[in-house]
Nucleic acid binder design. Structure first.
Lengths: 219, 219
DNA sequence: GTCTATAGGCTGATAGAC
DNA sequence: GTCTATCAGCCTATAGAC
């Protein structure tokens, strides 16, 4: 709610751009593309409304710039889990943890991606599409490695990817909703923490993919 | 795209109402609350735009009526999995299957719920909140029963609920997006079918929750 | 680069005839 | 109950001063 770039920050073009990217991420995540007005984004960024059009041509231009940047950062972070050739279950645990890390650093990204997916990819260009399939490629490769190693049973990599990423996006995207529900209907003692969910997913997923024969080390 | 209520249907008040509820579900799911214009909904329903205000007072009134009806139907269907006291893993499999059934009968509901959750529950009243926590209550009870029976390890019921429902909502809500991605970037041979995903989730979840000691019957 | 003022388009809701 | 016509509000984008 409070504007970014208080009196401390240098008011040059680069910082205006950055303030708009950050404010845009938050407002698009909360309200969707249509619901996020230029006025709202500009106010939160602490810059003039017309700066959106100057720096990004249109509101959609700002939106796409944010999505491109967000997905690039996500993919870079996720790709790192494959670099050293550890066992597949460890890599999958790392994948889940890395996803959680990105979501904590950038709380608005799951909501933005989820909204975009729900719209059928209304605002996506080919480059963004490519980044998204690249994320699937990581999971597919980890699953294939695990099957080869005997640490995973034979599962469909796409279904596996959709269930993991779907659960993660939902958890992090629904945080504001859960906060509100818990305030009105005390369903649990306190709001679940992100690390708890990451740990839960790591356990549930690696156990869920483990082969029938108990041919894997415990602990 | 094609309007509901072709020349065959009786044009009385009840059928106008129903046509608006159905058309509204589809349009709200595709475009969100803001993106769904009264004009668009009315055209798809094959009725006059002003009928939205006559029958539901406002666009928001129509939206809430749809959500209330949708969630009531979902809860009724899901609650049935608890009636006879079968083992918890079977009940959880049934829960997942029932969720999939509802999504196939009503393809727009996961998208609508997901969008509403992402907005933090912008348009929800207390009754709808109650229905949502009731769904969690089902999962919580199944998990508690499974832990008691020894068929599940000790897991957090809320985290379990969020991961299951999140994955299901995402899968069914992202169907149009996946269709588009598969058309542009051939990631898999063909689009995954709903039944395959349901089966995948049933296996992954029950295996993921199984206790460490192999003290349960196989097959 | 940034700001003010405004044009131009779209949308939800209603008044009033039938 | 349904339809046509219309109005008032809001929102994106731009022109033009600085």
């Amino acid at each position: 709610m409070r504007p970014l770039r208080p009196r401390g920050g240098a008011a040059d073009a680069a910082s205006t751009r950055r303030a708009l990217l950050e404010a845009g991420t938050a407002v698009f995540a909360e309200r969707g593309f249509k619901g996020a007005t230029a006025e709202l984004i500009a106010r939160r960024a602490g810059v003039n409304k017309a700066m959106i059009n100057y720096h990004f041509r249109t509101k959609k231009g700002l939106y796409q710039a944010i999505l491109t940047e967000t997905l690039a950062a996500l993919f870079t972070r996720l790709r790192a889990v494959r670099v050293d050739g550890r066992p597949a279950p460890e890599q999958l645990r790392e994948f889940i943890a890395a996803f959680g890390d990105r979501a904590r650093e950038h709380p608005a990204f799951p909501s933005m991606i989820l909204r975009e997916v729900l719209s059928g990819g209304e605002h996506l260009d080919r480059a963004i599409f490519g980044r998204m399939s690249a994320v699937f490629g990581l999971v597919r490769d980890i699953v294939a490695q695990g099957t080869r190693e005997g640490s995973f049973r034979k599962v469909d990599p796409l279904l596996t990817h959709l269930s993991i990423v779907g659960a993660l996006l939902f958890f992090f995207g629904s945080e504001p909703f859960r906060a509100r529900v818990l305030a009105e209907v005390p369903i649990a003692k306190r709001a679940p923490r992100a690390e708890s969910f990451v740990a839960h997913m790591q356990e549930a997923v690696t156990r869920g993919l483990a082969p029938d024969a108990p041919a894997r080390r415990k602990r």
